[in-house]
Simulated scan of single mutants.
Amino acid sequence: MDTFTPDLDGFSGVISIRRDDEVVGEWAVGLADRTAGVANTPGTRFGLASGTKTFTAITLLSLVADGLLSLDDAARALLGDDLPLIADDVTIDHLLTHTSGIGDYLDEEVDALASLSIPAQRLDSTPAYLPMLEGFPAKFTAGERFSYCNGGYVVLAVLAERAAGAPFARLVADRVFAPAGMTSSGFPRSDLLPTGTATGYKDDGRTNVFELPVVGSGDGGAHSTVADLHRFWRALRAGRILPQELVPLALEPTTAEADDGMGYGRGVWLDDGDLVMAGGDHGVTAVSRHDPATGITVSGLANIEVRTFARTREVMQGIRERVGSAD
């Protein structure tokens, strides 16, 4: 099969095309560490920003599968007196589908790159996020409409910890990364990145260490590789992470027109037949899209803020056309 060559102009990161056990094409450009002069490679770990939400949703569905939670459970049942402005009728499913209407500490309808209200180094665990989530009145009644909500996914991490009695990062590692064979994925501290992890760079050349929480939670902060993301999609669809009967819960459209013509499931964007995880933040851009019809995964991971969503869509379309012509 002829490989579709992506546009790499101004890119810094990895773009990968994989199908089953085959690497169809892979390109690594730019530097993972500008000070040390370390180049990005296909095995480099990158931050996923909001791509983390996909893992959060699957972790919550795993807890549902084990009977520790139900989609209809009210968030209040586990929140107790915390976050009193979250309405009593907001359920876990409202949070998963971005239809909760709760106020958001980082409202992307206002400013997607707003500064943190708490010093980044203090955000070193999911409970440490609670003060940052306080004081935001509801935007609308639960279930009324879709509105992308970062804070809602941190609330899901809080609920997961309380239901399962374990730190959120460990829950994701045990319930998603391990069964999928994602050995290079995790939630590293931004001030102690493991070897082989790309540093995120802002447009002015500074790193993003002061811009993002030192340890991620339900709405962002996971790191992964292009190989691990391909493993994730394959494991999810094969029923190795969730029981096969629960996989459709993640992938069914809960909102048909959520954003830019895309639908939304539970933690997964739905774009013209592709399953998509996507995220962008200071010094981070990440997109992984999987085509269930062909088994192809196209991932673009960057350690700068750069056009990536459109790139991966173009690559997927190009390679899909070649697969069709080959068949």
Rank of each mutant, 00 (worst) to 15 (best):
A128L: 12
A163S: 09
T195G: 12
A114V: 10
P119S: 10
L79A: 02
Y148E: 00
L193I: 06
E211Q: 05
L79V: 03
G151F: 06
A227G: 15
H290D: 08
G101F: 07
V215A: 03
G218F: 01
D203M: 11
A75N: 03
T141Q: 14
N40T: 07
P292Y: 10
L85Q: 14
V209F: 08
L229T: 02
A87H: 08
T195E: 15
L229M: 15
R76G: 06
T308G: 07
P248D: 06
R237A: 14
A164H: 06
A157N: 01
I15H: 05
F136C: 11
D7H: 09
L69R: 08
L60A: 07
G220V: 00
G30A: 12
A138E: 08
F4Q: 13
R189P: 00
T199H: 14
E257F: 13
T294S: 14
L212V: 05
A166S: 10
D104S: 05
A142P: 12
P119L: 07
G51R: 02
I296R: 12
R240L: 13
G51D: 03
A278L: 09
D271M: 05
L249N: 09
G10M: 09
T5G: 07
F168Y: 08
I118E: 09
V284I: 12
V215H: 01
I241A: 02
L212F: 00
L106F: 02
A157L: 01
L246S: 06
E26S: 15
V298C: 06
D228N: 11
L130E: 12
S12G: 10
V306H: 14
L236P: 04
V214E: 04
P179L: 08
V226C: 15
S70L: 09
E305S: 13
V176D: 01
A75P: 02
T35I: 15
L156G: 01
T297I: 14
T207Y: 06
L95R: 02
L212Y: 00
A173M: 05
R206K: 12
Q244I: 15
V287A: 02
D7N: 13
A169W: 04
L61M: 10
T35C: 09
G263E: 11
D9A: 15
Y129G: 00
S185N: 03
